[in-house]
């Protein structure tokens, strides 16, 4: 749902030279049909959001559960409840951490891929883990990070840690799984933008006495910012709405908004409050994305 706010990374303007280097796209007679699947997906998401919104205005009774009504009580409860506030902060903390780590780890990977001759193979290897179900991957990490898991065995064996540490059922394990899951969403947009940067620009910078580091800093990096923007938006949105990792690897110790909503919906059966929390999550994610996107675009424009 929050993905709707993310557009494809804009192509960096190329210095092709010559006026009128623009390509004119040809129109397909049935071009409109191509939008149909997209319209269906977005449309059903919008309908789902509308239904949730309507539910969030209903009242709740422990016995009769949802009672049709028009009330803002759920939103009021949301603001007042310290548990909700903590869950929000936890979700944001995890989302921001995952996004930053993905960016720091993913940018060099994207750079390497964009420079490589085996680009197609590397791209496939990068995306391959996505073919695995999130549930399976989470259980995989549960085993790896467990008391007798690979990580503990290795680190105690090498003498880094004196004794095995508890890694699972902590925010750290949730973050690790989410980084693993989401890093392709950071790498792909950055790599595709980097790949389209004219390599002669880097050479021109070197010709003007910029060493490799400064040529990267002043030319390649600013030109790759659209990819960074798309990657961070995508990763953050997905991290904020992740559910499987907090459920499996959080083991009840990591309370994110998604877990809270699930409890509200399925355990307490308080659909109106759960709906209000869902709507609030969507709005917060959208607000963060919009503010960040605007800021990032301003910086990108000013960095020249």
């Amino acid at each position: 749902m929050s993905l709707a706010g993310v557009s494809a990374p804009p192509a960096p303007p190329r210095s092709r030279g010559g006026a009128g280097a623009h390509r004119t796209g040809r129109r397909l007679p049935w071009g409109g049909v191509l939008f149909l699947p997209g319209a269906l997906v977005i449309g059903s998401l919008l309908v789902a959001c509308l239904i949730l919104f309507r539910y969030s205005l209903n009242a709740w009774d422990p016995v009769r559960t949802m009672v049709t009504s028009w009330t803002g009580a759920n939103y009021l409860a949301l603001v007042r409840d310290p548990v909700v506030r903590r869950a929000f902060i936890e979700t944001l903390r995890i989302g921001v951490t995952v996004t930053l780590v993905c960016l720091v780890l993913g940018y060099p990977v994207a750079y390497g891929i964009s420079r490589s001759r085996k680009r197609a193979l590397l791209m496939f290897l990068l995306v391959a883990p996505l073919l695995m179900d999130a549930l399976l991957r989470s259980f995989g990490w549960l085993v790896m990070l467990g008391h007798h898991g690979l990580v503990n065995v290795l680190l105690t064996g090498l003498g880094v840690w004196a004794s095995p540490k508890r890694l699972i059922y902590t925010p750290l394990s949730v973050i690790i799984e989410m980084i693993h899951e989401l890093i392709p969403f950071m790498v792909l947009p950055i790599a595709s933008v980097l790949e389209r940067i004219d390599p002669t620009l880097h050479e021109a910078a070197m010709n003007l006495r910029a060493g490799p580091v400064r040529a990267f800093w002043f030319i390649t990096l600013p030109l790759s910012l659209p990819g960074v923007l798309a990657g961070t938006l995508l990763t953050f949105a997905l991290a904020m709405s992740a559910f499987v990792a907090p459920l499996i690897l959080g083991g009840g110790n990591v309370l994110t908004m998604t877990i809270l909503i699930q409890q509200q919906m399925l355990t307490t059966l308080n659909w109106p409050l759960g709906s209000a929390e869902s709507i609030a999550l969507v709005l917060v994610v959208l607000a963060v994305l919009t503010a960040y996107g605007r800021q990032a675009r301003r910086i990108a424009r000013g960095s020249a």
Binding site: P12, P13, R14, S15, R16, G17, D198, T200, L201, E203, A204, A205, N207, I219, P222, L223, A300, S303, A304
Partner: peptide, 13 residues
Amino acid sequence: VGLVFQNYALFPH
């Protein structure tokens, strides 16, 4: 040595 590239290679940003 100043090289003028065939596509001019002006920095677009």
